Amino acid sequence: MLVVIDMQAKLMPHIDNGAAVLRRCLALVKAADMLDIPVLVTEQNSRGLGASVDGLIGERHCVIEKETFDATLCPDFVAALPSKETALFVAGCEAHVCVLLTVTGLLKLGYTVELIADAVGSRMPENKAIALARAQREGAFPTTAETAIFGWLGSCRHPRFRDALTLIK
Rank of each mutant, 00 (worst) to 15 (best):
V3P: 07
M7D: 04
M7G: 04
A9I: 05
K10C: 02
L11Q: 06
M12N: 11
M12R: 08
P13L: 08
H14R: 07
D16M: 00
A19K: 15
V21S: 06
R23Q: 13
R24N: 14
R24G: 02
R24A: 04
A27E: 03
L28T: 02
V29M: 04
V29C: 05
M34P: 00
D36G: 01
I37H: 06
P38I: 03
P38W: 00
L40A: 01
L40S: 01
T42A: 08
E43H: 10
E43C: 10
G48W: 04
A51M: 02
S52Y: 06
S52L: 09
H61E: 14
H61T: 06
C62V: 13
T68E: 15
C74H: 12
C74Q: 14
P75A: 03
A79I: 04
A80S: 15
K84L: 13
K84C: 10
K84N: 12
A87R: 11
A87N: 11
L88W: 09
F89V: 09
F89P: 02
F89G: 02
G92H: 11
C93V: 15
L100P: 05
L100N: 06
V103Q: 07
L106P: 01
L107F: 05
G110R: 11
Y111Q: 08
Y111M: 08
T112D: 01
T112V: 10
A117W: 03
D118G: 05
A119P: 04
A119F: 03
V120K: 06
R123V: 03
A131C: 07
A131V: 06
L132E: 08
A133I: 10
R134Q: 09
Q136L: 04
F141V: 11
F141I: 12
P142A: 13
P142F: 08
T144M: 03
E146T: 12
T147K: 00
T147I: 05
F150V: 08
G151Q: 02
G154P: 15
R157T: 14
R162T: 14
D163R: 03
L165W: 09
L165A: 15
L167K: 09
